[in-house]
């Protein structure tokens, strides 16, 4: 990846994906490097199950590239990416809700081999207990680092709704983890 590419804005790179293959490939690779961690984090923490998260993550970037081939004005690439990921995750969740079985739930709860800290395990477990919209807002803020306004755009929600969801999600997680956090905060 050339240095000049890495200095381009997200929007520039997005438009470059319409150009000839070598330029498009470089632009896509750069955008992938910039945003793939947060997109995967979103899919992983929203869906819980690693395999489903991986499928949604792959489809997100493929759709993202396909979308770039159409004429459109791009202002916020991360928000756009997360919006695609969100739609795919919602579809995956609908499928899962229709066919969910106890074993799936159990497996998702224990699919945490790579998590290293006890607190992190507790937080992810606590997140699973949140309503979907609360968990999503929490992930978009804490994992993806989106501003409140960006969360509004991604989730098509009002600012007040976003604030309430975020506040309650954090309070709920704090409530669940209160004994552990109290020790940790000392």
């Amino acid at each position: 990846m050339s240095k000049s590419i890495s200095q381009h804005t997200d929007a520039d790179l997005f438009y470059q994906m319409r150009e000839e293959k070598i330029v498009a490939e470089q632009a896509f690779a750069e955008l992938y490097a910039r945003h793939s961690p947060r997109v995967f984090a979103y899919c992983r923490r929203i869906l819980g199950d690693r395999d489903r998260a991986q499928d949604a993550f792959q489809d997100t970037f493929i759709k993202f590239f396909q979308s770039a081939q159409q004429e459109r004005i791009m202002t916020n690439v991360p928000a756009f990416l997360l919006r695609i990921a969100r739609n795919l995750c919602l579809n995956a969740q609908r499928t899962r809700h229709q066919t969910v079985q106890f074993e799936d739930f159990h497996a998702s709860m224990h699919d945490e081999s790579a998590e290293k800290t006890e607190l992190l395990k507790l937080i992810t477990a606590a997140m699973d207990l949140l309503p979907d919209d609360y968990r999503e807002t929490f992930v978009l803020r804490e994992y993806d680092g989106l501003s409140y306004q960006e969360i509004c755009e991604v989730t098509n929600s009002s600012m007040a709704t976003v604030k309430i969801r975020l506040f309650r999600a954090k309070q709920k997680i704090r409530e669940i983890l209160s004994p552990y956090l109290a020790d940790l905060a000392k």
Binding site: A41, E112, T117, L120, E142
Partner: peptide, 21 residues
């Protein structure tokens, strides 16, 4: 505030979530 910072710090350590396979 300490609890919220601890929570945020723990989330930042969630390497598994931030690492696409």
């Amino acid at each position: 505030m300490r609890e919220l910072l601890a929570m945020r710090s723990a989330v930042q350590q969630d390497i598994e979530a931030f690492t696409p396979p």
